[in-house]
Amino acid sequence: MMFKGTGVALVTPFKKDQSVDFEALEKLVDFTIDGGVDFLVALGTTAETPTLTKAEKLDVLNCIIKHNQKRKPIVLGLGANNTQELLAGLNEYPMQEVDGILSVVPYYNKPSQEGIFQHFSALAEATDKPIILYNVPGRTVTNMLPATALRLANAFPHIVAIKEASGNMAQCMELVQGAPAHFAVLSGDDNLIVPQLSIGFKGVISVAANSYPKDFCAMVNAGLQEDFVTARNLHYKLLKGIDLLFAEGNPTGVKYVLHKLGLLENVLRLPLIPASETLSQQLDQYLNS
């Protein structure tokens, strides 16, 4: 299982003219790897992927692959609410250069549980790459129930994990308890990872690891080693900072922090906008505390 510990959902830096800033992206890859992340996630939601053109997506992925130089496994975010479009995406990227796929539950059109099963079954039948399912009902509207996720895991050995972002701890426990040996349950909620590690999660795909990689990775590693005194202390050190990152949408807070750290411009693409003056002041206070 190469997808355990801390994965970072990388943001896409933009220049002031709104073009992709590849130099800043390379700096971010180094910053997160130096901070201790275990794997990189390219073109997730945090990357503002809906606002990127097809050419930009390919260029972003290739930049990450080239600069990573195989230091860490790379997961490609590849999701759609049109199954045929998802399958076509397998032919649009250098799949031989990535180590896995992160694929979100189809959004907006609200499929049934059977529809979700057939959607991911079609993906699994079309590729032999390891697949991480992504359940985030706050964004997709539809909640993939544990029974569906576990049915997929048992049907396809290369469905190796789920990024679970329901925030429902009872649902989380059901996933862990029923998971086959090859299937890892990963967190999609940065502020819940310590209690989730205590119930058997194997790691996290994190937004906050862009901004606070050293403390965040240390917290996750402590939890995986069942050192919950250390993990809890780091959790409460980071909790306010994590909550502020999401206060005005993602990656609004992350880009502000990374700008303050000198890594990239504080530029987002509409409909997302930079942090308000109030949030900027709150983040400044946290960073200086």
Rank of each mutant, 00 (worst) to 15 (best):
M1S: 13
F3H: 07
G7C: 06
V8E: 01
V8H: 01
T12G: 02
P13A: 03
S19R: 15
D21C: 11
D21Y: 15
K27H: 13
L28D: 02
G44C: 06
T45Y: 11
T49F: 04
T53Q: 13
K54C: 05
N62Q: 14
N62C: 12
H67Q: 02
N68Q: 06
Q69A: 14
K70H: 10
R71A: 00
K72S: 00
K72P: 00
K72R: 12
V75E: 02
A80L: 00
N81L: 14
A88I: 10
A88S: 13
E97N: 12
I101K: 04
I101F: 04
P106R: 13
P111E: 02
G115K: 01
H119I: 04
F120Q: 03
A126D: 11
D128I: 07
K129D: 04
P130H: 03
P130M: 06
P130E: 06
I131N: 07
I132Y: 10
Y134D: 02
N135K: 12
P137W: 01
T140E: 01
T140K: 09
T148L: 10
L150G: 08
A153K: 11
A153M: 09
A155E: 08
I159W: 05
I159F: 08
A165K: 11
M169K: 14
Q171S: 15
Q171F: 14
C172R: 09
E174S: 15
V176W: 01
G178A: 06
A179Q: 09
A184N: 15
D189C: 11
P195F: 11
Q196G: 07
Q196Y: 15
L197Q: 01
L197G: 00
V204M: 12
N210P: 07
S211Q: 06
S211E: 05
F216G: 05
C217Q: 08
N221K: 15
G223A: 12
G223F: 09
D227Q: 13
A231V: 14
K240T: 14
D243P: 02
L245N: 08
F246S: 04
E248R: 00
N250C: 03
G253R: 04
V254D: 04
V254H: 03
K255E: 02
K255V: 06
K255C: 03
L258N: 10
G262H: 11
G262F: 12
L268S: 01
Y286L: 06
N288Q: 14
